[in-house]
Amino acid sequence: MPKINVYLPDELADAVRDAGLPVSAICQRALEFAVRRITTIRQTVLSAIDDEELGTQLTSFTARAVAVLKLARDAAGGGQIGTSHLLQGMITEGSNMAVAILRSMEINPSRLTSPADETGDGGFSRPAATALELAVAEATALGHNYVGCEHLLIGLAVETEGGAGRALREAGADAKSLRRSVSAALAGYTQAKNPAAQNSALLMLVRRELAPLIKRVEALESR
């Protein structure tokens, strides 16, 4: 059986060792899960893109993420879907976490303009397909069992060939900043659900600002 080395930060390695966790088995399961997600994306990229197929194949994608893909397909007008269409679909949907993250970074989504990718025959362009795969990888790296618009936003920023990535990075939404913002938003959501701080004025403000995100995550948890 082939061997793959996994390198961990010192603190994490010590914690894993102290807990006596079966590293090999855990890594194997995580990799199997990630491979299944990526394989599904590639199969979808190579196949016809209709509403039923998007809904049934991309089961790990949230409803809003699937809606964004449908809007991107509509924006492409029957042509090949590029990263600019994915970004446009995200902005058009309007109520997803990715848009909220951009606004929190003082980036006006409606002012983002993205040059089109090189066109081809149907399906997703190569940069768009790569961005989708990167979105899955980002969700896996963050330990999330779903792929949302926030992960797609990071995937677009990481991807180097498409127009959407260039537009995001020029606006200040690089991958590092986006990862930090997503983590902060989810940390705020966790704090807002802590009953020990219910009387905190600051928490009440946080709860009000994060109410749409809390509703979204609770809907995901109830699936």
Rank of each mutant, 00 (worst) to 15 (best):
D14L: 13
T113F: 07
L58G: 13
A185C: 14
A30D: 09
V23P: 08
A175R: 11
S104L: 02
L178C: 04
I214A: 11
T190A: 15
Y189D: 03
L178E: 01
A34P: 01
R37E: 08
A157K: 08
D174V: 14
R64N: 08
G89P: 07
Y7R: 15
A173S: 00
V6M: 12
G188R: 02
S47I: 02
R223N: 12
S47T: 05
E32G: 10
A197Y: 08
L205M: 11
Y7E: 15
L54N: 11
T160S: 15
Y146K: 00
R64D: 13
L156R: 13
I107T: 03
V6A: 15
S95W: 01
H151W: 04
E170A: 12
L102P: 01
E93Y: 03
A100R: 14
P127Q: 13
E170S: 10
M1C: 03
S181Q: 11
M204D: 13
S177E: 04
S114T: 01
E170F: 05
D18H: 06
A63I: 05
L153T: 03
V147P: 11
A173Y: 02
G143P: 15
R166D: 05
G55T: 10
S24Q: 09
I81T: 10
P9N: 14
A67C: 01
I214H: 00
P212S: 08
L69E: 02
L132S: 04
A72I: 04
M90G: 01
K176S: 03
